[in-house]
C-alpha cells in the first residue's frame, strides 16, 4: 500500500510542478503593471472629438513608416502658439512651445527587441484601425497609465490566423 502511494506521488510530480508554475504565472499576470505617468495631462478626447483631429494628424509616421512616432513640440506648435482654453495642461504645452523644449512623453506600447513590427504594414497595407491594438483612445480624458489593450504574441497570431497572414516565426522575430 505504501508503495502505491509513493507511485501516485511520482506520477503527480509532474502535475504538481505544472500547477506551481501556472500559479506563479498567474501571480505575475495579476501583479499591477507599472503605472506610466505623462509629464502633461494630455486629453485625447478633446483633440479627437472636439477639435476634430485624427490620430495620424499628430502620429505622423503611422501610415508611411515603421514607427508611428510620438509628436514633437513642432506638431503641438502648429495649433498651440497661444492659450485658447482654461486648462493647466494647455498652459504647460504653450509654455513648452514658446521655449521650444521637447515634452518628455512616455511610451506606453513598446515592441520587444526581438520583434519586427511595422505600422506601415499594418495600417496602410492591412487596413487595421488604430483602436484594434490601442483601444478606445478617443474616450480618454486623461493620459492612459497602461496599455488599454494588452498585446501578447497570441493576440498577434490570432489576428494573423483570422486574416490568413503568415504566422512564420521569422516573419516577425528577427
Amino acid at each position: 500500500m505504501k508503495m502505491q502511494i509513493w507511485n501516485l506521488f511520482r506520477v503527480r510530480g509532474a502535475g504538481l510542478l505544472f500547477l506551481v508554475g501556472f500559479g506563479a504565472l498567474l501571480l505575475m499576470r495579476c501583479g499591477s503593471p507599472k503605472e506610466i505617468v505623462q509629464p502633461i495631462a494630455y486629453n485625447h478626447k478633446v483633440h479627437l472629438t472636439e477639435a476634430g483631429l485624427d490620430c495620424r494628424d499628430c502620429h505622423k509616421g503611422v501610415e508611411n513608416s515603421i514607427r508611428a512616432t510620438i509628436p514633437s513640440i513642432k506638431v503641438c506648435a502648429s495649433c498651440h502658439s497661444k492659450i485658447k482654453g482654461k486648462s493647466t495642461a494647455e498652459a504647460q504645452v504653450v509654455e513648452a512651445v514658446k521655449s521650444g523644449t521637447e515634452i518628455p512623453w512616455q511610451r506606453i506600447y513598446r515592441v520587444p527587441d526581438h520583434v519586427f513590427f511595422s505600422h506601415r504594414r499594418h495600417v496602410t497595407a492591412g487596413k487595421i484601425a488604430c483602436k484594434t491594438c490601442h483601444g478606445d483612445v478617443e474616450k480618454l480624458t486623461k493620459p492612459a497609465s497602461h496599455q488599454l489593450v494588452p498585446i501578447a504574441m497570441k493576440t498577434c497570431m490570432k489576428c494573423h490566423d483570422n486574416k490568413s497572414i503568415s504566422n512564420d516565426c521569422i516573419h516577425c522575430h528577427v
Binding site: I66, H114, F116, H171, H173, V174
Partner: peptide, 30 residues
Amino acid sequence: PDVTRRMKGVVEKCSFCHHRLAHAKDLARY
C-alpha cells in the same frame, strides 16, 4: 536595432539578413 541580441545559452547563425527582407517586403507592399 533590427537584430535581436542573442543571450547566453542559445545557438545562432547567419540568417541571410532576413530582417532586411522584412523591411524590403514592407516597403514593396507600401
